[in-house]
């Protein structure tokens, strides 16, 4: 297993946000973590990236215990996150944002090659290269957030809500690129509220509800699971009422 999370507990003050999460991601997989707002999806990714300290549990990445490692060292090991809400550096240019993505690397030629690869996936970023990132549209910012994460040449990419706030056409585009990135050899853990899209590209999936994993299986199995169909793939009005 590339990533093994066992019995992870995270607290925000008195709130028990993650109540014993266990999950695995194998090499070359796209695994998705779906669930409603507030289920703990982002918290899980934040804990994996070292942005919050879990109170208990263990995170092992490529046979190394990274549970208590600082965030910047986790990036160096190849576990890289494109966070929720994009979090691009609006006060930096597109070029500088990509450069920050490659912060842990010093091999200029290789960085140049990564940049070319990012441009092939997101030609729009090349057009906007010298623009301040804050002036990009939402879709372009998402492209930049993913492109920036790719600049570190990750072994495994953590994506938090890449579809958030994007038009359906852009969502299709972004998901096609995620699939392509995966086919080029990057393992992906995808957190999504858009369960339909996530299950359409993932190999396996976990369903998170109030800090616990309640279901898991192949994407195919979960697509057909009555509980998933009702809560995450069913009628929109019904989901909103439930959520």
């Amino acid at each position: 297993m590339m990533l093994e999370v066992s019995d992870l507990h995270v607290y925000y003050g008195a709130i028990h946000a993650l109540q014993g999460i266990s999950l695995q991601v194998g090499e070359g997989e796209i695994v998705t973590l779906i669930g409603a707002n507030g289920a703990g999806k982002s918290t899980t990714l934040r804990a994996l990236s070292g942005l919050i300290r879990p109170r208990a549990g263990k995170v092992v990445f490529r046979n190394e215990d990274i549970t208590r490692k600082p965030a910047h060292e986790i990036v160096k090991l190849g576990l890289v996150q494109a966070p929720e809400g994009r979090r691009i550096f609006a006060n930096l240019t597109v070029a500088e944002n990509l450069e920050m993505g490659a912060y842990t690397r010093s091999d200029r030629k290789e960085i140049e090659a990564s940049r070319e690869r990012v441009f092939r996936s997101f030609p729009r970023l090349k057009e906007r290269y010298h623009q301040m990132a804050g002036t990009l549209s939402g879709g372009e910012q998402q492209m930049l957030a993913i492109g920036r994460a790719l600049m570190s040449r990750p072994t495994m990419l953590l994506l938090d809500e890449p579809s958030m706030g994007l038009s359906p056409i852009l969502v299709d585009e972004i998901f096609a690129i995620i699939q392509e990135i995966n086919q080029q050899g990057t393992t992906v853990l995808l957190v999504e509220q858009n369960a339909y899209m996530a299950l359409s590209i993932a190999h396996r999936a976990y369903v998170l509800e109030t800090g616990r994993i309640v279901l898991s299986g192949t994407a195919q199995e979960l697509r057909e699971h009555p509980q998933v169909r009702a809560a995450y793939l069913g009628d929109v009005a019904e989901v909103q009422e439930a959520g």
Binding site: S49, G50, L51, P70, A71, H72, V75, K76, V80, Q81, A82, P83, R87, I88, F89, M100, G101, Y103, T104, R148, A149, S152
Partner: peptide, 9 residues
């Protein structure tokens, strides 16, 4: 936090 996720100490 975003800077941390770039590997910046």
């Amino acid at each position: 936090d975003a800077a941390r996720l770039m590997g910046i100490n």
